[in-house]
Write a protein that binds this DNA or RNA. Sequence first.
DNA 1: CTTGTCTATGCAACGAGTTGCATAGCAGGA
DNA 2: TCCTGCTATGCAACTCGTTGCATAGACAAG
Lengths: 188, 188
Amino acid sequence: MALDHAILVSLLERPGSGYELARRFERSIGYFWTATHQQIYRVLGRMVTDGLLLVREVEQQGRPDKKEYSVTGPGRAALAAWLHKPIEPESLRHDLAVKIRGAAFDDPAALIDEVERHRQAHRDRLAHYLAGELRDFTAPDAPAPQDAGQELQHVVLRGGIAYERMTIAWLDDVLATLHRLEAAGPGA
Amino acid sequence: MALDHAILVSLLERPGSGYELARRFERSIGYFWTATHQQIYRVLGRMVTDGLLLVREVEQQGRPDKKEYSVTGPGRAALAAWLHKPIEPESLRHDLAVKIRGAAFDDPAALIDEVERHRQAHRDRLAHYLAGELRDFTAPDAPAPQDAGQELQHVVLRGGIAYERMTIAWLDDVLATLHRLEAAGPGA
DNA sequence: CTTGTCTATGCAACGAGTTGCATAGCAGGA
DNA sequence: TCCTGCTATGCAACTCGTTGCATAGACAAG
């Protein structure tokens, strides 16, 4: 159900097409929620028939036409209702952790390359987030009162940054452990 | 597909019934993968017909009989194959972050209770993890060479601990931000 | 003028995950 | 005796999410 709400938030921040939403889900919104374009198009259609969104055909020059979606009153009300309803704390889904525990029944050292690949991916994401923070939240004005939306977007981004830093440190820990097991020798 | 592999790992660590697996998925394995008992029973059935698992009926005293599952050779091979196949780095799914950004279009202060509830839940989980670490990885022997399985389980648990600590710190940041916005007044 | 790339939308099929319900053995207490 | 609660297993229906495929306009490079 939360994809609906992520779409409402994103469209309230700025109306846009399904394609644009799909790209946002690879960037800012995608920091904490993912979705493919197929999923987005399907949900957009349902939300329009449910009256939560409004479509408008937009002709463009130099590229195909698009459908721009924006949030209706009922859409805004649906978001508000969700905001006031408690949700359960997150449950993790970490494939790599399953692999690490599974490595006990195979060769732990064989995981080293994989873990290093993940570590690099998280370093890249961290760099991307930090660049975005510099661009969007540090440059323009002094530590003056920004508007609420900006403050809230910033604190969410800080969460993404903290997550990546924590993950990189943990993967270093994992790598050190795997190297130690490798040095101890297989079957030791 | 990863639920299959999580089950294989858990059953290699110790054979057990569907019910026992469901409880493990609320504990150790559940630190990084979740599943309901319905999902587990369904997958267990499929894995038996696929020859990855073996069932054995076990009569019990004082409680209903159970079916104990254990991993076959092909099951072990399937796990090894997965371990050697690269996977994509994780994508986050964090409802609360969606709510926080959505709060810009509602009353940010109204989220404070919810965030505090989540913060408490994460503090509880952290305490639970730390107790488990003390019980399973600190008590018995000196910093001696443990076996690989223990080392790997420990490093995964350390990841869970780091995640909870990071999350609690971030939620403190979120709370400070929400209080600041509240003090600035609505519409400021 | 064909090929490739980016924008833009969508269907169909499948697999993963959730929710509600149902059954049943066994134990302890009201 | 009945009710509650824990252990133990499972079906049915539904929604969510992924994968593969298909279409099409516009532009740039070869």
